[in-house]
């Protein structure tokens, strides 16, 4: 099909990059998908052309204009260390990588839209209000963790880029952490532990985006972005204790100063990996964001609310449970005659 959209996805081998490419390939308005990453995506993409290049490499300035893409989607921002991408490489990949990508955009006359899949970590996790951050409330608090500062820095570059190129639609998506059946993020693995260490006396409010909604929101923003930042989050919120009860997980409350060291020691052994970035603070103070801009301006309505996302995750029931066979709750339920 001639005259359709040509979309370049940076970080196509990431879960979100691959999912987006898969959705775009099926879309009638899309003529060509071009993927950019150091390794090929884990699944076969038929209509996608691959550019194997490191996002930090200056070669981008030559390769990106040659693609003739009209939309650039940066889906390669890493939220936590992975195999082959240790914590110390994250700053380079996230900040320098984004900078190289934006520099390449400046040389690409065909680019009309730039979409970055960022993080709501820029708001921090604070005991103080606001309980629902709006887009203009970024940086109300000091950026406390390394990851937050990286996000802050790359958002700074992005805003600067958007200011200088007012003819382009530059959209920054601020994602709350994702969850979903089959998704293996550190937070999802943490919530799947048979016995889950929590911080004694704290019960944070969480908003976790269902993986299905996370992909659909990225697709919506890719096809029709709005200028500026947009929070990607479900409506409502759910407390950690309720989320764990829904999953039938046993809580092990630890005094909060012991939580981070305990997770660092036990995390790997229990299969949860290390909780990175602001996850420790997220699991103490929680974070809520306002999603009205996503619903009204981006026009994306998530399928799951905060409770629904957890319920769907719990239904898939990853990992083993510690509770004795029938579970106290279900015994009580049967005695009371409440059907499950």
């Amino acid at each position: 099909m001639a005259g359709g959209r040509r979309i370049l996805i940076a970080g196509i081998a990431s879960h979100w990059g691959t999912e987006l490419a898969r959705a775009l390939e099926r879309h009638p308005l899309v003529e060509q998908v071009i993927g950019l990453d150091t390794v090929p995506p884990p699944i076969d993409l038929e209509r996608t052309e691959m550019l194997e290049v490191d996002i930090r490499s200056p070669a981008l300035a030559r390769l990106v204009p040659a693609t003739g893409a009209d939309t650039l989607v940066h889906a390669g921002i890493l939220l936590y260390p992975e195999a082959g991408k240790p914590a110390r490489a994250l700053h380079d990949i996230n900040v320098i990588g984004t900078l190289q990508l934006l520099a390449a955009c400046e040389r690409s006359p065909t680019i009309e839209r730039v979409v970055v899949r960022g993080s709501a970590a820029i708001y921090g996790c604070e005991p103080a209000g606001p309980s629902f951050f709006k887009e203009e409330m970024a940086r109300s608090f000091a950026l406390r963790t390394r990851f937050q500062r990286d996000i802050g820095e790359l958002e700074g570059y992005f805003e600067n880029f958007a200011r200088r190129h007012s003819d382009l639609t530059c959209c920054m998506l601020r994602y709350q952490p994702e969850i979903g059946p089959g998704l293996r993020t550190p937070l999802a693995r943490y919530l799947s532990l048979p016995a889950v260490p929590t911080q004694l006396g704290f019960d944070p409010r969480l908003q976790l985006v269902h993986a299905e909604d996370a992909t659909a929101a990225l697709l919506a923003a890719t096809l029709d972005p709005v200028p500026g930042a947009v929070n990607i989050a479900p409506s409502g919120s759910i407390s950690l204790s309720r989320a764990l009860r829904m999953g039938g997980r046993t809580q092990i409350p630890l005094p909060h100063p012991l939580f981070a060291p305990a997770m660092a020691r036990l995390g790997d052994r229990l299969g949860a990996g290390t909780l990175y970035g602001d996850a420790i603070r997220l699991l103490r103070f929680g974070r809520g964001v306002d999603n009205r801009r996503m619903r009204d301006e981006l026009g994306f309505r998530p399928r799951f609310d905060a409770t629904g996302a957890i319920r769907d995750f719990a239904r898939a029931g990853q990992g083993m449970r510690l509770a004795p066979a029938p579970g106290i709750a279900s015994v009580l339920g049967r005695v009371a005659g409440v059907s499950r």
Partner: peptide
């Protein structure tokens, strides 16, 4: 269980629902 009084059965039922996380919280918690 039908031998138990209704109020007690209801209380046990509510407890079991709470233990499964089936209760309402608004967006403020």
């Amino acid at each position: 269980s039908s031998e138990l009084p209704k109020s007690l059965r209801d209380a046990i039922g509510r407890m079991s629902q709470r233990m499964r996380g089936e209760y309402h919280e608004d967006e403020w918690g």
